[in-house]
């Protein structure tokens, strides 16, 4: 059962990613990207991590794809879209194949095949919260500072534009 679901999810996410890259209409590409993110969220659900899956949906589908769609719709069609030359395509395929074979061999050599997953372990979001605020609090603090500085940068840029008008 899980195998069938896994294969279906893999087909959906890879197919949607290919459409996202290759779609002639750029809006179709953006929506396909959202579908591939949903496929990833499905992987998190079969890995017994619904909390991560929901954040994947909220952040990537709910925010990132919306931003991409928003940007894409403000661009006029067929502008800035360049079809890749044949040799560029070949280089890309070779690079992807080398990467896949390399990572696959590393993964197979690491003893993954003999590893047994722990059964019945479910991490609740309360434990994640406790861990974040006790053991990992410096990381949380730094992440907050990074986000705050990004917001301040965006505000400064917006203000500079307004003053120029």
């Amino acid at each position: 059962m899980v195998d069938i679901v896994f294969l279906a999810l893999a087909a959906v996410s890879i197919g949607a990613s290919v459409i996202a890259l290759e779609a002639r209409e750029i809006v179709y590409g953006a929506v396909a990207l959202g579908v591939s993110f949903l496929g990833l969220a499905g992987f998190f659900i079969i890995l017994d991590a619904p909390f991560v899956a929901l954040f994947q949906i909220t952040v990537y589908v709910g925010a990132v794809v919306v931003l991409i769609l928003f940007t894409v719709m403000l661009i006029r069609r067929e502008k800035g879209v360049k079809t890749p030359a044949a040799w560029e395509r070949g280089v890309g395929i070779v690079a992807a194949a080398v990467l896949a074979i390399g990572m696959g061999s590393v993964a197979f050599a690491s003893g993954l095949q003999t590893w047994v997953a722990p059964q019945g372990v479910q991490v609740s979001f309360r434990e994640i919260g406790v861990q974040l605020l006790t053991q990992y609090w410096p990381i949380l603090l730094i992440l907050g500072l990074v986000l705050a500085s990004a917001v301040m940068g965006a505000l400064t840029l917006a203000k500079v534009e307004r003053e120029e008008k």
């Binding site: 909390f51 929901l54 949906i57 909220t58 589908v61 709910g62 919306v66 769609l69």
Partner: peptide
């Protein structure tokens, strides 16, 4: 995780409207 699911599902509305 009920409320979080609700929030995640509501996030689809802007995409569909666009």
């Amino acid at each position: 995780l009920g409320l979080l699911v609700l929030f995640a599902v509501l996030g689809f509305y802007p995409i569909i409207i666009l």
